[in-house]
């Protein structure tokens, strides 16, 4: 590491900003991959790694990935839930690599819900 100048501070900060945002728990979009035993069997791991690759490739800093358990609709796995901050979460079903990429581009990055893969908008009521 060579000696840095004042403007380099921002560069270094920018470089690992995403890491830090992740820790602060602040994000614009959250993608939950349902990784129950059924989900994993149906290929949820592949979806997860696709998403990780996409985030890396697009240099996205404000999207977080989270894993959760079986959503209860095992026959339509793999499933993900996309939640933009302040918006209603959307569940997508029967995913594969290609569909995941499309959802990521359209919904996560551009904010357009991909109606053709969506199961439902909103979550079950809890309690």
């Amino acid at each position: 590491m060579s000696k840095i100048k004042p403007e380099d501070l921002d560069k270094i900060g920018e470089k690992i900003k995403r890491t830090m945002l992740l820790r602060e728990g602040s994000y614009r979009a959250k993608v939950t991959i349902h990784m129950g035993t059924c989900g994993i069997a149906a290929g949820a791991r592949k979806v997860m790694s696709t998403l990780l690759d996409l985030i890396e490739k697009e240099q996205v800093k404000d999207v977080i990935l989270s894993a959760s358990s079986c959503a209860g609709l095992c026959s339509r796995e793999p499933m993900i839930t996309v939640e933009l901050k302040g918006k209603t979460p959307v569940k997508y079903v029967d995913l594969d690599e290609e569909k995941t990429m499309k959802i990521f581009q359209a919904h996560v990055l551009d904010g357009e819900v991909v109606q053709e893969y969506a199961l439902a908008i909103g979550s079950e009521r809890v309690g």
């Binding site: 890491t19 990780l52 985030i55 989270s66 894993a67």
Partner: peptide, 10 residues
């Protein structure tokens, strides 16, 4: 820098 989905702050 490598991307991770989760950080475990130990």
């Amino acid at each position: 820098m490598k991307r991770f989905r989760t950080h475990l702050m130990l």
